[in-house]
Design a protein around this nucleic acid. Structure first.
Length: 271
DNA sequence: ATTCGGACCTGAAAGC
DNA sequence: TGCTTTCAGGTCCGAA
């Protein structure tokens, strides 16, 4: 479900609440969520304090003051909530952290159970980080350089987390529409102006989505249970058979790598 | 080297 | 109404 804007919205929401909290207990009701071999590793968090939260691509990292970090990937339906401890856990809540002297706890909920949690030493963070650059932090020259020697199609590249981190199916389509590029355009056919447009579109779309606190089409809710607003501003995603908001042509949908791509056949001409 | 389907899961919506 | 199929903000793996 969640892409960069949704994950960032969650991280910011959690940060304002959780920093400094001391872990008093945990509850793991779906053990397969934890990718470490031993569940006992979670005992190490008892008594430690939360130093801060970070986002990297679509991942959420919670740093503790004992050099341990908890990493979460929400995959399609993962959610974080801060809920009063007295509220019963529903059947999709798989993990919870309770804090000393706090009436609220942190809960991880995931209907489809694709999400994952991993514990590792904070100092080891870089070890497994093969992710591409953060799209809102990369300069144009470095963005342009990413494409050197590549010839893949744009939709696939934007979705490739090792190429650039944090973009998913919704924002890839929105970005390509904004840049007026067909999702199946291969890098080798791009001109310099296209790269510039693509870089501009990446930043514009993600920034706008962040301003609207993400897109809620079916599952996304932030840490306070609120929906985002960006679904009201989507230009192409999910608009199959509806008129293009720019030219009026009918929006089409194609299948690429098992996923839907929405595009305007006029605005986003195939090269 | 890419690309494709399937796997991992559940539930909502659409189709018949 | 009810049964079946399709679809979903992600990623991994193995086979063409």
């Amino acid at each position: 479900m969640p892409e960069l804007p949704e994950v960032e919205t969650i991280v910011v929401g959690l940060s304002t609440k959780l920093i400094g909290y001391e872990v008093s207990s945990f509850r793991l009701s779906f053990p397969r969520l934890l990718k470490n071999n031993r569940e006992q590793i979670l005992n190490k968090f008892l008594g430690s304090r939360i130093l801060g939260l970070r986002r990297r691509g679509k991942m959420i990292l919670i740093d503790f003051d004992n050099d341990l970090t908890l990493l979460f990937h929400l995959k399609m339906t993962g959610q974080f909530f801060i809920s009063p401890s007295y509220e019963p856990h529903d059947k999709h809540t798989h993990f919870a952290l309770a804090f000393r002297n706090q009436k609220e706890e942190l809960r991880f909920r995931d209907v489809r159970k694709f999400g994952s949690m991993l514990c590792f030493q904070t100092s080891q963070t870089l070890k497994f980080d093969g992710l591409g650059p953060e799209p809102l932090e990369i300069s144009f020259p470095r963005f342009r350089f990413l494409f050197q020697g590549r010839k893949a199609r744009l939709k696939g590249l934007l979705l490739n987390q090792n190429f650039i981190a944090g973009i998913g199916n919704i924002y890839a389509d929105e970005i390509l529409f904004e840049a007026k590029l067909h999702p199946l355009t291969s890098v080798s056919t791009l001109e310099e102006e296209d790269f510039k447009e693509l870089w501009r579109a990446v930043r514009l779309v993600l920034r706008r989505a962040l301003e609207h606190r993400g897109t809620s089409i079916r599952d996304f809710k932030d840490s306070e249970g609120r929906e985002g607003n960006f679904q009201n501003y989507l230009q192409v995603y999910g608009r199959k058979s509806l008129p293009c908001l720019r030219c009026g042509e009918i929006i089409e949908r194609l299948r690429f790598n098992g996923r839907s791509s929405y595009f305007c056949p006029i605005c986003q001409k195939k090269r």
